[in-house]
Design a binder for these strands. Structure first.
Length: 350
DNA sequence: TAAGCGTGGGT
DNA sequence: TACCCAAGCTT
């Protein structure tokens, strides 16, 4: 295999031609002119991209930056508005940490820390995101290791050790490859390579700039790497969700606890499936209108949906009625939106 | 350290 | 269909 300098040079040449055009990236002309991207946009995109596909992030990124163009604007936003804008993207702790981080940065004058250590101390910024900001926004020779980099390193160096045990070795290999020249472009180039050529299945080795260097390719095992420890089967949980609709069209909604599943998000009162539920929120003529199936990261969920039309003076024990004009299904987490959609189809609104 | 934490698209 | 997995972080 050639040395690290040759590998990085070929990768950067490939990237100069094949870099993906993404909303949070600067244009090729700006890159050639040495213009760095806005750290706020780099940070926001990196947090959104944690365990989330580029396709899913794009619209959210546009809405967030359109509404909150800088970190001070985001820091000043009400919690509920940010959570509502994040609804549907998942991993809602990210949104809570995003706001906490924005407010910490705003409190220090709106400047993100320029060191990896400083970035790591902020909420929601871990080893990957700190390195990504340092490399992409500051052009520091930080080594980013995400799922793409793990896969590329596993194949290039034929690392047979399963993840996550192999992560330290992959990090070390990736660090060896990180150049002093254009480290930010290098970091993005490895990720683009993993996303577009060195893909999980059917990698396009024939057009890979590292084809001749790849140990897994030489051995014909590229499609089998990286190996992973077997995953535990998802259990099935069952429970109920109560959807109370007032005669004026208001829905009974409660804000979930900050910690735990769907933390900080609005939802319909439930029981028996999330450890945060309770008894039915009010006495009513509940009608079982069907079930909602939803899969979370670590369990399958089957929910019976109970719907009731209740009088204007109904006084719930849990949650509060959200007026029709203020109720937007798009501001609910997906499982709750599914339940609402079922109810809206089941019985015509008053 | 390992579990908890969402969702949507691809195969 | 069922499974994989995606620019991970927190506790």
């Amino acid at each position: 295999m050639r040395d690290a300098g040759q590998l990085s040079a070929d990768l950067l040449a490939w990237y100069d031609v094949n870099a993906r055009v993404l909303p949070w990236r600067t244009s090729p002309e700006d890159r050639r002119a040495g213009i760095r991207p806005d750290p706020y946009r780099v940070w926001l995109s990196e947090v959104m991209l944690q365990q989330t596909t580029v396709a899913a992030v794009k619209d959210y990124f546009h809405r967030f930056t359109g509404r909150w163009p800088d970190v001070q604007a985001l820091a000043a936003a009400p919690d509920a508005e940010v959570m509502a804008e994040w609804a549907g993207l998942g991993y809602y702790a990210r949104a809570r940490n995003l706001l906490a981080c924005a407010r910490a940065v705003a409190a220090r004058g709106g400047q993100f820390p320029d060191s990896r250590e400083g970035l790591l101390s902020l909420p929601g910024i871990g080893p990957y995101t700190a390195a990504a900001i340092a490399a992409i926004a500051w052009d520091e020779p930080a080594t980013v290791v995400d799922g793409n980099v793990e896969r590329v390193m596993a194949r290039l160096f034929r690392i047979e050790t399963p993840l996550p045990a192999a992560k330290p070795e992959m990090t070390a290999r990736a660090a060896d490859l990180t150049p002093q020249l254009r480290p930010g472009d290098h970091a993005q180039a490895v990720m683009d390579l993993g996303a577009t050529i060195c893909t999980p299945r059917s990698p396009a080795c024939g057009i890979c700039p590292w084809m001749g260097d790849c140990a897994a390719r030489a051995a014909g095992v590229q499609a089998e790497l990286p190996r992973r420890a077997p995953k535990a089967a998802k259990p099935v949980r069952q429970g109920r969700l109560w959807l109370a609709r007032r005669t004026d069209g208001a829905w009974l909604v409660e804000t979930r606890p900050d910690r735990g599943l769907l933390g900080g998000m609005p939802g319909f009162p439930g029981d028996g499936w999330d450890g945060a539920g309770g008894p039915e929120p009010l006495a009513a003529n509940w009608q079982d209108i069907g079930e909602v199936r939803h899969t979370f990261t670590h369990f399958h969920l089957i929910l019976r949906i109970l719907l009731a039309d209740v009088p204007q003076e109904a006084a719930p024990d849990r949650g509060a009625f959200l007026p029709r004009a203020a109720f937007r299904p798009a501001s609910l987490p997906t499982v709750m939106r599914k339940a609402h959609d079922l109810a809206a189809r089941a019985v015509p609104s008053p």
